[in-house]
Design a protein around this nucleic acid. Structure first.
Lengths: 242, 242
DNA sequence: CGAGGGTTTGAAGTGCATCAAATAGTGTGG
DNA sequence: CCACACTATTTGATGCACTTCAAACCCTCG
């Protein structure tokens, strides 16, 4: 299979571009540039005019905003197969966040004008984008709820529950793993690494988990979801998983 | 001017419906029902199937989500001239929150199917809705940043700054007022009433404000914005004001 | 004037942050 | 394969911010 076809398929595997017209996908592939990033490398900067949007081929990308006094608020931690900075196409706005590679990564950069033009000309695409951003907005509402109502231990529990497959059937001895650094998980949840470590210990005791490095064993899914979701408006398995 | 025309104009004054086709506005007006609400009355319930969306004619409406253990997370506090529950039309989803009148109020209820059908058939409307929800999503990202980075006093300062007119030119002795109960402001900011009271006192001293009941006098706008916005990625006057 | 809700104050507790330092884990070059 | 360097993670000690519970105060409105 050709390089071109690979790229087309990759783009089509995203929710936003799944039903995009062939002409758009072709143009995107033609004008795309692959970029290798080293750990810590900044890709785009919050409030800069948006010129490109990106597809992640390899690695983890952190998007965040930074206050004057140097603290960060994480917007998202993104993995291969996901897009970022695509939302600037929806309202022709500057980048809403800074993006940085958290490890050596590889991304595809594409002109955002191709996307925004397509949204302007294709009603299907506009409706699809509407559905997409709608979903994202709901996830943000859910996140705000979490920040407001959950304790640190519950936030971690919620994070772990979201790692599970939607069709999870077993309820005992489920194994999974933190997909990236605990420090980064902590940042994503808006808590300090030290607090994360202590809260995780509390979660182990309270909700019956084992942790070895990044490996997690959930001995009792019901215990975990009960502890975690009592401070949330949704019950496990909740819909707004990212 | 007829009642019908009044309603049409009212609907057109909202961002979402500003450029809606006449046919939609007409249908909405025809199928609208005016409802009087008493304080505390529940209008819609989170996760119920969405049947209507609403325009606020009078009063303040609180939208929120509630956890199993009875705590609330405020989504928005809405005033006359605003819509709510309209977002369910964008992805045909159930209500994303419960809505309650915080005081005696009057609203217009309209079938959400009229709106969602129009979005499906009118590309202009879809694009407009996309822009609209995009903006809202950005506001949510901004809110998350606030929850993560700001102290209680800074949250209040930020709230006050957002009360000012966008074209505010004076920088000393500016007068404004809390638009609703301090308790409700506290809830919107995700803090307790007691904490609100104490944090407001701190803000008065630190940022040179006077407060009498709900009346606020900002003696030095620069002092206020400097104190408040140092914990935020945006500088006053910031764009994502609601 | 009295009732009730909004608001403030006080006292005490909890959870998280911070600072400092020890430990574990990982990748490197010798 | 080991020692070193570097980073991630944990632990300890302490402080601060916010919450909680209780009670007083204040303001409005019937």
């Amino acid at each position: 299979m050709s390089e071109q076809t690979d790229l087309s398929n990759a783009l089509r595997s995203t929710f936003l571009l799944a039903k995009a017209p062939d002409s758009l996908i072709e143009k995107l592939v033609t004008h795309s540039k692959s970029e290798k990033l080293s750990k810590g490398q900044i890709i785009i900067i919050h409030d800069d005019p948006a010129e490109h949007f990106f597809f992640i081929k390899k690695g983890w990308i952190k998007t965040y905003r930074e206050s004057e006094d140097g603290h960060q608020s994480i917007v998202d931690i993104l993995h291969p197969g996901q897009l970022f900075a695509e939302d600037s196409a929806f309202d022709d706005s500057p980048y809403a966040y800074t993006a940085e590679a958290t490890e050596d990564s590889e991304i595809l950069s594409m002109p955002i004008s191709l996307l925004s033009q397509n949204i302007q000309t294709s009603p299907d695409m506009a409706r699809h984008a509407l559905r997409y951003i709608s979903l994202k907005q709901k996830q943000k509402i859910h996140e705000i709820e979490h920040m407001t109502l959950q304790s640190a231990a519950q936030k971690i529990g919620c994070f772990i529950l979201r790692l599970l497959k939607p069709n999870q059937t077993e309820t005992i001895n489920i194994e999974t793993r933190f997909p990236y650094d605990k420090t980064l998980v902590a940042a994503k949840l808006g808590i300090q690494p030290e607090t994360f470590s202590r809260a995780l210990k509390k979660l182990k005791d309270t909700a019956n988990l084992s942790i070895k490095g990044s490996a997690i064993t959930i001995h009792d899914l019901n215990a975990l979801s009960q502890f975690t979701c009592s401070a949330c408006s949704a019950k496990y398995p909740c819909k707004d998983r990212q």
